[in-house]
Design a protein around this nucleic acid. Structure first.
Ligand SMILES: [Zn+2]
Ligand SMILES: [Zn+2]
Ligand SMILES: [Zn+2]
Ligand SMILES: [Zn+2]
Lengths: 132, 132
DNA sequence: TAATGTTTTGTTATATTATAACAATGTGTA
DNA sequence: TACACATTGTTATAATATAACAAAACATTA
C-alpha cells in the first residue's frame, strides 16, 4: 500500500475546521471542536495536524503553538513560510511576498550550510490595534 | 525599587549553564542541572529564562522549545534573531549577518504593519552531517 | 477472493512544557 | 522606620505533545 495522496477522514475534518478559522487554532481547541465529528483523543488531532503540516495545507505558528491554514498555494512545495503576528490582538497573517522568499531561499551564510526550509515570524502591532 | 539592571542569583546560575553549553538546552534539562545550586522548581527556571530572553542574553529556539546563549552582542537591542538548525544533528547556530538583518528590519509587506521584532529559523543539513 | 503486508486508526497512558496563585523575603526610597 | 514594589519559594495544576500497541482499513498479488 502506498502512502496516501488524498486526505483521510480525520485529516479532512481537522482541515475544514482550521480553514474556517481566520486565526490560528490550538490543538486542544481543535480537539474540542471536532469531538462531535467523532475525533476523541489528542493523538488523532496531532496526527492529522502532522500530516497537514507535512503536505503544506496548514502551518504551525511556532511561537504560539497554534495552527493556521495555508494562504499561499506555493507552500506545499517550497517549505518557506513567513508570518506577521500582532502582539496586541494576536492576529496572524501569512506573508506572500516573492521578493522576500527569493531573498531567503537564496540566502547563504558563511557556514557553508545549505538550507532546505525556513520559517520567519515578524512581530509588531497591526494597523487596527495601532489606531485604537 | 527599580527594575533590576543586573542579574539576580537565579538568572546568573541559569545563564552560566546555558552559556557553557554549545547547544540549546531545554528548560527541564536546565532545571536538572542547576538543582545542586539550589534551584528546585520549574518556575524558578522559567522566570530566569523569561528575563534572560527579555534582555537578549539568551534566545528561545521556538521550533525546539530550547534556549541558547546569544552569540551576537547586538541582539540585546535589536530583537532580531536568525538561526540555522541542522535537522540531522540538531546543531543550532546564531546567524550574524548584517545584510540579512538590514533586509529584514526594513522589510515591509503590503499590510501597512510596522514590525518591531522578528525571528527566523533556517533548516537544513549541516556540513558535518552531509559529509557522513 | 483469500492471503499478505502496510497504512491508518483508536485507545489508554504518560511525558514534556509552561503557568497560576499566593505567601515570604529582599531592597531601594522617603 | 515605614512603605512600595520587585523578586523568590513553593505547591499545584494547566497546556502541549508523544509512546505503545492492538484493531481496522486498504492495496497488492497470489
Ligand atoms: Zn502557506
Ligand atoms: Zn492587532
Ligand atoms: Zn543573539
Ligand atoms: Zn548536523
Amino acid at each position: 500500500m502506498q502512502k496516501q495522496t488524498f486526505l483521510t477522514k480525520n485529516q479532512q475534518i481537522v482541515l475544514n475546521l482550521v480553514e474556517k478559522s481566520s486565526q490560528p487554532l490550538k490543538a486542544y481547541s481543535i480537539l474540542f471542536n471536532v469531538q462531535k465529528k467523532g475525533i476523541k483523543a489528542p493523538l488523532q488531532v496531532y496526527r492529522a495536524l502532522d500530516r497537514l503540516v507535512e503536505i503544506g495545507k496548514i502551518h504551525k505558528i511556532e511561537s504560539r503553538n497554534a495552527f493556521i491554514a495555508c494562504q499561499d498555494s506555493s507552500c506545499q512545495i517550497s517549505k518557506a513560510t513567513a508570518f506577521s503576528i500582532c502582539e496586541s490582538c494576536e492576529k496572524v497573517t501569512e506573508i506572500n511576498n516573492s521578493k522576500l522568499s527569493k531573498y531567503l531561499k537564496n540566502f547563504k551564510d558563511n557556514s557553508g550550510m545549505k538550507y532546505s526550509k525556513y520559517n520567519l515570524e515578524f512581530f509588531g502591532v497591526c494597523k487596527k490595534c495601532k489606531n485604537k
